[in-house]
Amino acid sequence: MTIDTASAERAVAPAARAIEVVGGDLTEKSLRRYLEGIPGVDAVGLETRASALGTRSIKTTSKAWALDRIIELIDLTTLEGSDTPGKVRSLVAKALVPDAADPSTPRVAAVCVYGDMVPYAVEALGSAHAAGSHTGIQVAAVATAFPSGRASLAVKLADTKDAVAAGADEIDMVIDRGAFLSGRYGEVFDEIVAVKAACERDNGTFAHLKVILETGELNTYDNVRRASWLAILAGGDFIKTSTGKVSPAATLPTTLSMLEVVRDWHRLTGEKIGVKPAGGIRSSKDAIKHLVTVAETVGEDWLTPELFRFGASSLLNDVLLQRQKLRTGAYSGPAYVTVD
């Protein structure tokens, strides 16, 4: 792909982080240069490290803590074309009381729905809705022509604004993978900046912005790493692996790679960015591997809902089964957790 000089010199949105880190007048070219200067990733080494982290053995008290924490980190998700207000209400009920048999079970971090479902989620949550605070359950909405992201910027921004206006606390946007893969980093960047602006509420506060990279489509770890930097530079509060609609979705090496970027950003600026693996994490075992990876890569400070989330739907029930096993000492079965 050749970039003509005019477009290379094109200024990109003056996002504060990028100005501070990349410096100077931000242009397509300076952004590209910065991203291309990031050290590469050796896939074999990354995967070896991830699989080594996956062999940690988390037992007894650590496991009990981990299971509860996993629940507290879940964005309980339904993202189907067939979603209905009833389905969303049922999801919210599960979010509020994950295990009716055990009131000590913590609540999930958020429910994650399509933008048009936000009003039903907000309504169903009632006083349990976080509504901009750190307590209570957040409502996250996917936006920007999720999952493909193939729509005009105007549509994407309208999508975002609608969801925020309806009470979404968090926006899970998708990046334009086509633009990224064809090297138009500035375009991806500008779009994130614009969506971030669209997250502003009337009172001047912002809905949290999670930037979905759709790592399965970016394909290489080098791309994942660059896209992670790009999303952070453009103002993302969270970087998120996947929509869940593309395979592979969240894999441990991908999450590890993104955590490394977050760690490096923190080293560079002192600022903490969140990470959300989404899609494909179905078992407690997988989720615990992620917790280990977070703790040993960025530190356990990150194991809070403000900085780490699981985007998942079936994970919760598996964690509940494991919790029941820990509590009773006997293995549980699917009939003893609710289907929603």
Binding site: D42, A43, V44, G45, E47, N219, T220, Y221
Partner: peptide, 14 residues
């Protein structure tokens, strides 16, 4: 009077 040198390289597509 030769020494066998074995070289390992990682192979990664991603």
């Amino acid at each position: 009077f030769t020494e066998t040198k074995t070289v390992w390289h990682t192979k990664g597509l991603l």
